[in-house]
Amino acid sequence: MTSWGMAIDTDRCDGCNACVVACNAENNIPTVGAPEARKGRTMHWLRIERSVEGEFPDAKVRFRPVLCQQCDHAPCEPVCPVYATYHNPEGLNAMVYSRCVGTRYCANNCPYSVRTFNWFEPVFVEPLNEQLNPDVSVRTAGVMEKCTFCVQRIQEGKQNAKADGRAVRDGEIQPACAQSCPPKAITFGDFDNPDSAVSRAARSDRAERLLGDLGTQPSVVYLSGPADRAERQSDD
């Protein structure tokens, strides 16, 4: 079996936002404009949270990219009345847009606030309308959406491997965010393969999971220096 996961090294992240842009481009995520953004209606599947540690002049800024944590025990899943979000066999927290009726219950119950809602019919201003990804559906007004771990790339990778008659190689599949990260802070792979890069990262003593005590069992691990981590835990 496969269990997709991600490791994000926040010591490497410099907050450049390339992942956010790549994600928008890959997944046909609409931009909403300043007035809507001010109302908190941005659509990004991935955001970079910024926190300042210490006092000036010894201050240090830390960036934390937050995306859907693809929880094994996802609070968003059971509350959906129509199975629009459910757990797929590869550990993904799948989102079926065409089933969604838009109760937004999942979004309320997501402790990471990573689910976004199409408040209006999406608009892709020129020239963005010319570069929509044909592998990803454009969502209509009234449905929820969120990070899929670039499920279209996962499928492509699996198909390529199958065509070649081999297993998927570690690192072969890369979500847009991981691919575009200049300092290579994001690693993607299979948790069920003990030798994969993500599994090694998850075993490291630098690894922690976001809001791990809620019992959501996220598939994303964050890596940071042990000293920094202790400091940050007292903030959280």
Partner: peptide, 15 residues
């Protein structure tokens, strides 16, 4: 007609 956005709800106040 125009979408649920005509209401004041937003992220994170979805309800």
């Amino acid at each position: 007609k125009y979408g649920l956005g005509v209401a004041g709800i937003n992220r994170p106040v979805f309800w």
